[in-house]
């Protein structure tokens, strides 16, 4: 039985669109095609002039790019081309005359008068709408459920609206999938004279380089104005406004992403230039310490990978003929089988390779490198490195670079932003700070490692495991550091000779002072420790004075990287200021649903979603960070640090990381604030004061009774 071939109806729709576009090209926009042909001929003649000028050929050409267009564009223009040239020549001096300025001011004021004449009518309409129509919706009623108009809309109108929306969504998706839009766009770029303008510019550029003619420049400006008028005459004004808005939106999003990336680069410069290996962020509660710490950690992780990559590229330059991919594959194999797990094991691995080579001197023992024919060593002007010195450095760099895990260890969960692109050749890392879609699930993402403080202890340790090792390289984030380490006053009851680990006998501070030694490769250090605390004095002086303090002096929220958003801001602000009080009052007085409220709420919902997503993608805070030495000498340099919403607030870390631990204690009582007893009067009596379980009240009462 023959299988019925079902033809997708969307092909018919697109065929009709293409047919209509081509018909319009032939019968309406034919001037654009004639102009394009002229522009192409001008490119050839300009190339001839260019060749005659620079290569001394003798082509007989008439440069069309030096003259007015011969195409009949004057039917679109209010003036002839000669008149336009005369106007252009006289324009600059005429701009600076009082008569012209006064005439323009009169014109503008006439326009404003027209607008002001309509303004009272518009204001009156809004006022009547608010007072007569909306206020009637605020009368108290016991009605429940939906009104009849709303029911009709939801049951009859909305399904049709959704079907129409789905139809166009699928039509657009089909066009994108079959790559039909690019051909349609090409036809319309030709129809609207856009491509002619580009080609005409090319023709003029080639001519102008050969013959610097001001008259030709002016004539081409006239040609350009004529071409632009032909372009704008090709579509109705409303359609141009829509196209203009789409182009503006695309451009402003591009500039927004550029600005966010620039802010991120400034942050990286700040971290590399001003932060030390051990840092402490200090500020009041809810001032953004954890937020800043997380942001620094995410950027530092990318900095370490960038540094490793830079280091590897330098090794490539030292031995350009070395088969680096062979070494990389061996390092990846060693990582998989746990022969390499950290920097010391990477160095041991390279040393083992060196010994194997020197016992045999075969190419297979030196990763297939033709060491007899190519360079065996590199002189950097200070010392000479042989192949295996470079291999040892490279092995360490590549290990840190390729390991497919977060480089962050922390005492609260951080969702890493590093993404590895690996198509079987050299892997490349990028971050998902600004381009990723909104996050849905955080479970099973690339998360930070749970910090084991024993890795930072050179003395006594809390855990009983012997094979803990020490923290090698990476980014360590320690929130509430003062509560972990304590200061001299809080630790005074501990003794160094205690059997159990305590802040005095664990030599944590000593490790922080020498931490760079375990994380340095080729004079570059791959470790940073960032903590936060409310008061710097909460951390002992021994540790604090080797840190850099970062004071959160101020945080300016709600900056927007996307330009030209002011009108949307005003509209959104107006809608919320009017609608929010209305809906609260409405819900206070009634529970039912009405069509007008439904439509208004959905309009506000659309704007709310658009506004929130814009700030979510392109919003950022500016934190004023005051840098001070840990010795707290009072010299504070304030720098700006940029925290992008999409980078750091997209479920990247929990702002309430101890919530679950506190909840365990809270749930024991099975009561809440509503269950707590209240005072009977403005002055509490003895029984009520005793219920406070207060140290002061207990002591006070003891003295009063004594």
């Amino acid at each position: 039985m023959k299988k019925e071939r079902k033809i997708n109806y969307r092909w018919y729709i697109y065929s009709a669109l293409f047919a209509a576009s081509i018909a319009l090209a032939v019968f309406v926009h034919n001037t654009s095609y004639v102009r394009l042909w002229e522009a192409l001929r001008n490119v050839v003649s300009s190339a001839g002039v260019y060749s005659n000028e620079f290569f001394k050929t003798s082509f007989n050409v008439t440069p069309g790019a030096a003259e007015f267009t011969a195409v009949d564009v004057e039917k679109f223009l209010p003036f002839t081309l000669d008149e336009m040239l005369a106007k252009l020549e006289a324009l600059i001096p005429e701009l600076f005359t009082w008569e012209n300025f006064a005439a323009y001011m009169l014109f503008v004021l006439n326009g404003l008068t027209l607008v002001l004449a309509f303004l009272p009518i518009v204001v009156l309409c809004f006022y009547l709408f608010g007072q007569l129509i909306l206020s009637s919706y605020l009368s108290e009623t016991d009605k429940q459920g939906r009104s009849k108009p709303l029911n009709f809309y939801l049951c009859r109108v909305r399904p049709i609206k959704e079907k129409v929306k789905d139809f166009f969504t699928e039509l657009v998706a089909f066009g994108k999938e079959k790559k039909l839009f690019r051909w349609l766009a090409l036809i319309w770029l030709l129809n609207l004279n856009v491509i002619s303008i580009g080609v005409a510019f090319l023709a003029f550029y080639i001519y102008f380089v050969a013959c610097f003619s001001v008259l030709a420049l002016l004539k081409n400006i006239v040609n350009l104005i004529a071409d632009l008028i032909v372009m704008f005459a090709g579509l109705p004004l409303l359609l141009w406004l829509v196209i203009g808005y789409v182009i503006l939106d695309t451009l402003r999003k591009y500039f927004a992403r550029k600005k966010l990336r620039h802010n991120e680069n400034k942050n990286k410069g700040f971290i590399k230039g001003f932060l030390s290996l051990v840092n402490l962020i200090v500020g009041f509660m809810r001032s953004g310490k954890n937020l800043t710490e997380t942001d620094i950690g995410l950027s530092a992780e990318m900095i370490h990978r960038d540094m490793a990559l830079e280091g590897m590229v330098e090794q490539w330059h030292k031995l350009p003929d070395f088969p680096w991919r062979n070494l990389e594959k061996e390092v990846e194999r060693a990582l998989f089988f746990k022969e390499i797990v950290d920097l010391p094991s990477a160095r041991e691995y390279a040393e083992k390779k060196r010994k194997r080579f020197f016992s045999d001197m075969q190419r297979s023992k030196i990763f297939g490198y033709e060491w007899e024919n190519f360079a065996y060593e590199f002189d950097n002007g200070m010392y000479v490195e042989d192949v295996f010195d470079i291999v040892e450095t490279y092995t360490q760099y590549y290990m840190m670079y390729v390991v497919d895990t977060s480089l962050i260890v922390s005492n609260y969960a951080v969702r890493s932003g590093a993404i590895k692109n690996d198509n079987g050749h050299f892997p490349v890392w990028r971050d998902d700070f600004f381009d990723a879609p909104s996050i849905r699930e955080t479970f099973d993402n690339n998360m930070s490692h749970i910090i084991d403080y024993d890795q930072f202890r050179l003395g006594k340790r809390v855990g009983k495991e012997k094979d803990v090792g020490i923290f090698g390289y990476g980014v360590a984030l320690m929130s509430e550091k003062g509560k972990e380490r304590g200061n001299a006053v809080e630790n005074q009851h501990y003794k160094k000779t205690d059997e159990d680990a305590n802040p005095r006998n664990d030599y944590f501070n000593l490790f922080l002072k020498v931490i760079a030694h375990s994380a340095t490769v080729d004079y570059k250090t791959f470790v940073i420790v960032v903590g936060d605390e409310q008061r710097p004095e909460s951390v002992g002086a021994d540790e604090r004075e080797v840190s850099t303090l970062l004071h959160i002096c101020d945080r300016e929220q709600n900056h927007l990287a996307m330009p030209f958003f002011e009108f949307e801001e005003l509209i959104y602000s107006f809608l919320r200021s009017k609608f929010d009080p209305f809906i609260i009052e409405y819900r206070y007085n009634r529970d039912d649903g009405t069509l007008l409220t439904y439509l208004m709420h959905h309009l506000v919902h659309k704007f709310y979603g658009y506004y929130t997503r814009t700030y979510g993608k392109y919003g950022y805070d500016v934190v004023k960070l005051g840098i001070e030495k840990g010795t707290m000498d009072g010299q504070i340099d304030v720098h700006d640090y940029y925290i992008s919403n999409h980078k750091t607030k997209a479920r990247r870390y929990p702002t309430d990381c101890y919530r679950n631990m506190l909840a365990v204690k809270a749930r024991r009582a099975k009561t809440g604030i509503a269950d707590l007893p209240t005072y009977r009067d403005v002055r509490g009596d003895d029984d009520e004061m005793e219920k406070q379980n207060s140290f002061f009240v207990t002591e006070f009462q003891k003295h009063l009774k004594g």
């Binding site: 005429e94 012209n100 300025f101 005439a103 323009y104 927007l560 958003f565 002011e566 005003l570």
Partner: peptide, 30 residues
């Protein structure tokens, strides 16, 4: 975005539109 920044930016756009409008107006007038 701060209100002062919104108003400041709108004034800048208005000035730019005013200037472009002036150039086009004079071009048409002469």
């Amino acid at each position: 975005m701060k209100k002062s920044k919104i108003i400041g930016n709108i004034l800048i756009y208005s000035f730019i539109a005013f200037t472009i409008g002036y150039v086009i107006f004079v071009f048409k007038m002469i």
